[in-house]
């Protein structure tokens, strides 16, 4: 069987009294886009931040190509980190920098890409995301949807091997949402990156992701293909993917 690229093994995380992850087991395979779905506030972003090392597990381990990341020497850990790119849910754009400077920053700071090449790659990426002509604007001058696309451009400008998307299309209009999804799918096919995407966009994620994992009550209650999750008979999964809340439905019916 193929060794997972990233593997969570009984990962626990707690913030004060709030236990967010209660023994997460998850496998992410190379060359696939894996969607992590689940109710809001359940800990999907926390899980994603563990992958890139922004958060450390209280217990358990996260493996990269079979090796525990937290047991790696600093140099190896840094080498792993350099393979990743992260798109934040709240965009995390640098508000004192222009859009051009924001997207160019990861290339510029490495000091290994020539100036003209940086210019070309930034302009290409902005054009692909329908953002041409806003290079000199600041994030505060853009709409929420445009900021999302700038954040996506910044995440993809380095042509990373693994991209972590935290709700990449929330707040976008349907046309731009489809464009962003199509771009992720197309990029994945072209460059073969591994993607992990936290998303609520059901059923869209079933068409662009090869693997779905569902987080519920601190654990992964399902991981498998989109076809498998759609055929699942598990009530919690069926209710979630159909957008049904049994308690709310019951309350609404009783009010009638």
């Amino acid at each position: 069987m193929t060794v997972p690229l990233i593997e969570f093994n009984q990962v626990f995380k707690r913030f004060g009294d709030n236990a967010v992850l209660k023994g997460v087991d998850l496998s992410i395979y190379q060359g696939q886009v894996t969607a992590i779905i689940g109710k809001s506030g359940i800990g999907k972003s926390v899980l994603l931040k563990h992958i890139i090392g922004l958060l450390e597990p209280d217990q358990g381990e996260i493996r990269f190509q079979g090796q525990a990341i937290n047991a790696m020497p600093a140099v190896a850990r840094r080498a792993v980190k350099m393979k990743f790119s992260y798109m934040f849910q709240g965009t995390a754009l640098f508000d004192s920098m222009t859009i051009y400077e924001n997207v160019a920053l990861p290339l510029k700071e490495k000091g290994q890409v020539p100036f003209r090449e940086i210019q070309r790659r930034v302009r290409d990426k902005l054009a692909q995301l329908d953002l041409a002509g806003i290079e000199d604007k600041y994030p505060s001058q853009l709409s929420g949807g445009m900021k999302k696309r700038v954040a996506m451009a910044r995440a993809l400008v380095t042509d990373p091997e693994i991209v972590l998307f935290d709700e990449p299309t929330t707040g976008l209009d349907p046309i731009r949402k489809n464009t962003a999804h199509a771009m992720i799918a197309q990029y994945q096919k072209t460059f073969g990156f591994t993607g992990v995407m936290v998303s609520h966009e059901i059923p869209d994620v079933f068409y662009i992701c090869q693997r779905i994992a569902m987080l519920d009550q601190g654990r992964i209650i399902f991981q498998g293909s989109p076809a498998e999750i759609q055929n699942s008979t598990e009530p919690a999964i069926r209710q979630f993917i159909r957008g049904q809340d049994p308690e709310a439905t019951q309350a609404a019916l009783s009010e009638r």
């Binding site: 931040k49 090392g53 790119s85 754009l93 640098f94 920053l105 990861p106």
Partner: peptide, 12 residues
């Protein structure tokens, strides 16, 4: 606003 976290994710 997670801008410092963003720097870390970019290996800056």
């Amino acid at each position: 606003s997670e801008q410092i976290d963003a720097l870390e994710t970019m290996d800056i």
